[in-house]
Design a binder for these strands. Structure first.
Lengths: 184, 184
DNA sequence: GTCAGATCTGACCGATCGGACAGTTATCAT
DNA sequence: ATGATAACTGTCCGATCGGTCAGATCTGAC
């Protein structure tokens, strides 16, 4: 886990992250990654067991962040849960912009991924938190809309400073949920 | 254009639509489609010039619907533009649920697609309509959030009747834009 | 220097991809 | 019946895919 950083290894990860988020996992070949990273294809497979291992290592931090958000939501309900879920998810989506893009491109393929096995259940928990615990269709739909809105908006880079983007996404999400954003 | 329907041809299209939306364009092989359609891979290529031709034919109606929405928005501004854009886009996303899923999976690849060349510009027009003509960051971001919210929510099938989904999505989108949904 | 282990390369492998093509079968007007 | 055309199949092709492997090169401890 805590290996020597090996400059090339890190460079490979960065290159793969960019390519995966640009062209998708299936749309990116080991040859492509090697070319961008400036090494041979075999060098990739020296540092990583497989193409899938690269993906796993790239998505693990985001998965851990999502799990951490989940634990932060336990015990909360109603207004508190909704607000915590909104700010937590917005921060997460902004911190892992490219990872979100990767996830969204291959959702059907990815949810089967071993490192992401817990994601669907966590997303479900996040949805009920966004809905403030309500199971009414209107609240469920609004929660789902927030999920989509934040993911898509964070993934695509409009030329807005991150501070502004964060504040506006939180305000917009709260409006979507029918909660006044004026609150501290 | 108005060819004899050829039962198999239609069946191929339906099979490809399902597979593309489930596994993505790159994630679906001609062999897969042929298997689901119950014919040989060569039969596919008798009815369609290429895999890409299947995709084009599948996405063309959605592209036309989007173009139609665009023309319906010309001349409108402010409140009128926003409301027309919301209802129009919600209807479109619901009518082409699977197509939206395909588009979202391969956005970077797809926008280069010849049949979809006009889509980015149309989306931009749709965004300004959703923002009610405003170019303020807060309005632009809210418009983008609506785009994502509607697309994602329509694409994934939560078990809600389409009537309810449509009404709630419109109400939620208007809330996101900071406009009261009470209006007729 | 030298030697061991880490790092990296070129060549190669089997599988699968989209697609081409010659030939076979079904359909149908005459 | 027969000929023409549409519909379809089996087979093959070159390209590309992820991955393996034997060996070359680099590196630092001794």
């Amino acid at each position: 886990m805590a290996r020597p950083p090996s400059a090339l290894r890190e460079h490979i990860l960065r290159s793969a992250l960019r390519l995966f988020s640009d062209s998708g996992y299936k749309g990116t070949s080991l040859h492509d990654i090697a070319q961008v990273a400036g090494c041979s294809k075999a060098a990739l497979l020296y540092h990583f067991a497989s193409k899938d291992a690269i993906l796993t290592e790239l998505l693990t931090p985001a998965g851990e962040g999502l799990a951490a958000l989940r634990t932060r939501l336990v015990g909360l309900d109603g207004e508190q849960a909704a607000r915590a879920a909104v700010t937590g998810f917005v921060d997460l989506a902004l911190r892992f912009r490219l990872e979100v893009r990767i996830l969204f491109q291959d959702i059907p393929t990815m949810t089967v991924h071993p490192a992401l096995g817990a994601v669907p259940a966590t997303i479900r928990r996040l949805l009920t938190a966004l809905a403030g615990g309500s199971t009414a269709p209107s609240d469920t739909i609004a929660a789902y809309m927030v999920l989509g809105a934040v993911s898509v908006t964070a993934a695509d880079d409009l030329g807005v400073p991150e501070e502004v983007l964060r504040a506006e996404m939180i305000r917009g999400a709260l409006r979507t949920l029918g909660r006044e954003p004026d609150h501290p």
